[in-house]
């Protein structure tokens, strides 16, 4: 089976500056991986590059066996990204947003009802325009899309941010369930304890490269340096 993510000397530019400068990353299918690192280190850019949203301009990059530089669309169909943006249309209702995202991805809509209930978006909320939701509720809608769609590779950028305590536990449940079902999950997060409970494999993004974390203490120091 092809690795979920394979990057070799990958370079990603933000403007003229390299956000990733020759990064190496190997994530096997079915793994859960935690990315840490100071603010501005390139965690979000790495996730967006894995989703094919920012180009890898040098080096090699494969997602689920698809060459990202040559066939980004083929990779995108199999990837789900929860980024800082939630990709919602403010004037559409919660339900319409979820249905559109699933249909656009060519996924079935049978799981919509269960996903909305699971993320606490059933009842009155399903008919509310996304523009009237709180930030936390918007992230729940984005998570409902992932839960209903069940992509093979989940890329989660600060998935706990802005979500209440019950919602944060739910995020962890979804991650563990996705992994149990065989999906690969990459989480960029500053919540070290939560991440440690989800996976033993932790990587540090810093200085444009990706390295294994020596220990949770290293991570804490790195995070503190970026705070």
């Amino acid at each position: 089976m092809a690795p979920a993510i394979r990057m070799h000397r990958a370079v990603v530019l933000l403007g003229r500056f390299p956000a990733l400068a020759g990064a190496d990353l190997l994530v096997e299918a079915g793994e859960v991986v935690h990315l840490s690192g100071p603010n501005g280190a390139g965690k979000s850019t790495l996730l967006r590059a894995c989703a094919g949203l920012v180009p890898v301009v040098e080096g090699e990059a494969e997602i689920l066996g698809h060459d990202l530089r040559r066939h980004p669309r083929a990779a995108r169909r199999r990837v789900g990204l929860l980024g800082h943006a939630t990709f919602l249309y403010d004037d559409l209702t919660v339900e319409d947003n979820v249905l559109f995202a699933l249909r656009a991805a060519g996924a079935g809509t049978a799981a919509v009802e269960a996903a909305l209930v699971r993320l606490g978006l059933s009842g009155r909320l399903r008919g509310v325009a996304a523009g009237r939701l709180s930030a936390g509720q918007r992230r729940r809608v984005a998570l409902a899309v992932l839960e209903a769609r069940r992509p093979e590779l989940w890329l989660l950028d600060e998935p706990h941010a802005g979500i209440d305590a019950a919602g944060r536990d739910l995020v962890d449940e979804l991650v563990l369930e996705a992994a149990a079902a065989g999906a690969t999950v990459v989480i960029a997060s500053h919540e070290l304890e939560r991440a440690a409970a989800l996976t033993p494999r932790m990587l540090v993004v810093s200085g444009g490269s990706v390295t294994p974390a020596a220990s949770p203490g290293t991570l804490a120091n790195t995070a503190a340096a970026g705070a």
Partner: peptide
């Protein structure tokens, strides 16, 4: 403008449409 709000354009690109 509708596609510019909250990264919706990236959502379209990600969808594989």
């Amino acid at each position: 403008a509708v596609e510019a709000a909250d990264g919706a354009r990236d959502g379209l690109r990600l969808s594989g449409l």
